[in-house]
Design a protein around this nucleic acid. Structure first.
Lengths: 347, 347
DNA sequence: CGAACCCAGCTAATCGATTAGTTGAGTTTT
DNA sequence: AAAACTCAACTAATCGATTAGCTGGGTTCG
């Protein structure tokens, strides 16, 4: 690799002049500028970011740490983040904490070592202590994405999970369903907890309760959702409608429904929250609440770049996006289903 | 951020000793080692990669440049690559060339600037000229993934696309289908071209031909596949079976089939190639050829790390993985379908 | 005409690590 | 006991860029 010295020698100028030309940081006469540029081309010179970053103290790197890279939801976040980050002149590093707090801790240490300019973090566990890991110095600019944690001084970008759970549930209730079931996410993360809370609130406000035997955690995983959905639906007097707290789990639930020989929405109505690619291919089309994922990601990157530029967090900003209900045909009015509560088990 | 000098001062030793302790690169007495380690802890010191990399001339960064980050297939590659790369002690940068050769060129320039230790590249366009962009110096260690390009000195990891097309087609032919159609990928990339060639070869060897009006390109995109599938299936005398060259396109095709009121496999049999998350939720279950994606990714990373270690490419290695046929229930024997070629248009 | 100024371009310090080369106290050899 | 070794630990050069500060020729102005 050619260095700035090689270029300077080839162009017959000093390294300072080369640097000035490359960065447009000072006036250089047209002649020298031309000589430098042609030398750059001849040697196919590209400045070393390692050296530049060492001097400037930044890296043009932004890290995205997601909780589960196998989840298509986060794959879309990766896609959106790559584009957003590139638009601001940064490059994107990807890490997968795999829902393990200990791994998250190690990743954040590495992020610091790599001197990333900022982190977009989907936190796992319930502490962000690792974020202010620098007793004297300033912490790395951080935006928490999707989930929140207890005590916090960081910017956050989240959705209104309670509203998502409520909207989906109210839609089912409006169709006349009263015996509802749900496949939740992990209840120790806000996305799991909030959606269930929204559902409970919606039912409570109509004087209904959610029976605990109709509540199962699918852990935000397709396979887990499949098996808990099976066991949930094989109960005698199964619910007439199901709220599934994530798109990935909805795939598993639909699979379980098909494997049990149940028809959707004929035998069971299903509503879910969040969209993943591929869900559009499902028939029936799922009724679901969607998040403005691209907007959320753009906003997270914008907040992060803003923090980086001003060199430290201002007072924390919490941006909450609202989900919207997208009606498909996976839900039917309860009158169209068996009217009398059937005490028979599924097949 | 504390520097190595701060640590040296705090521990009352030289920076060389601190470095020796951190890297285990020379013997240090137990006492000094303890002093250094405690200073490291006190100051929460993390060595600056920028400085280390500048000196060592490497970055511990591997770039993954994919052709379409919105495609769930590549999302899975990202997932597998992150894990593989981390296991070797590297971190993963993600870039999306979005099938644009010009963007790919810019990305590779940036990869060079970032002094990435290596690149896993899903090439778009048909030249790798940009890879030996350094007239004098050595090119960045590179592994081409999934696709190949004409002239090449790089390692490659690919699948046998011809075999994938042939296996899927032969399965359909064995069921008695003779009027086949296909939704192809872009024919200028090897994954698109090869799968079609495999299909053509399979038909030719049974004395059949693929009518050109039954061939459509879905560009490896879900929406494009949806619309070309619609127009293909709305023709009079539509094919009785379809080979769809990618998982993402298969979702679009299934959607088109459903929207046209056709039953699969009743009215039309469908086989495809490659798996994406979410495809498992489809009913009927798709008959398809699958790639050992995780193995492929691991192999690509292994080859790349090997290149990095030996400091330059040995003679290029081309690893080809074989697809395997996974039988679902999206295909039916032709006798079960309308026996006489129906000259009626769909619906 | 000389002082004051301007400014293109240069010299050299600097960022934070690694590491070749040096030092000097302690040990072994003869 | 001097010479020859060992070896823990240190000093200082180095990686490739940026940039503060300097230089010296050319203008402007009193």
């Amino acid at each position: 690799m050619a260095t700035i010295k090689d270029v300077a020698r080839a162009a017959g100028v000093s390294t300072a002049t080369v640097s000035a030309v490359i960065n447009d940081s000072a006036y250089v006469s047209a002649e020298l500028r031309a000589r430098v540029l042609s030398a750059v081309r001849d040697l196919n010179y590209a400045p070393s970011l390692a050296a530049r970053n060492l001097k400037r103290g930044r890296s043009q790197l932004i890290a995205l740490v997601v909780a589960d890279l196998a989840n298509p939801f986060f794959s879309r976040v990766v896609w959106a983040a790559e584009a957003a980050v590139a638009a601001w002149g940064y490059s994107l590093l990807i890490f997968n904490s795999d829902e393990k707090p200990e791994l998250e801790r190690r990743i954040l240490a590495r992020v610091r070592t790599l001197s990333c300019d900022g982190v977009i973090l989907v936190p796992v566990g319930d502490s962000t202590e690792h974020l202010q890991n620098d007793p004297d110095g300033k912490p790395i600019p951080t935006v928490l994405f999707g989930r929140t944690v207890a005590d916090d001084r960081s910017d956050t970008v989240t959705i209104d999970n309670i509203s998502a759970g409520r909207q989906a549930t109210e839609y089912l209730l409006d169709l006349g369903h009263t015996r509802l079931g749900t496949i939740t996410g992990p209840l120790h993360v806000t996305t799991g907890r909030g959606r269930l809370d929204g559902m409970l609130a919606a039912m409570r406000s109509r004087g209904l309760t959610l029976e605990s035997r109709y509540i199962r955690s699918g852990e935000f995983r397709e396979d887990a959702a499949y098996s808990v959905a099976r066991s949930l639906l094989e109960q005698p007097a199964r619910p007439t409608a199901l709220y599934v707290a994530s798109g990935l789990m909805a795939l598993g639930v639909m699979r379980a429904v098909a494997d049990l020989g149940l028809r959707c929405p004929g035998d069971i109505s299903i509503a879910s929250t969040d969209t993943i690619p591929g869900i559009g291919g499902l028939r029936p089309r799922l009724t679901r609440t969607e998040h403005p994922l691209v907007d959320m990601t753009n906003e997270a990157v914008r907040l992060l770049v803003d923090q980086i530029r001003r060199g430290g967090p201002a007072e924390p900003r919490n941006v909450v996006f609202q989900p919207s209900l997208v009606v498909g045909d996976s839900c039917a009015p309860v009158v169209a289903q068996s009217v009398a509560p059937p005490p028979t088990s599924a097949r």
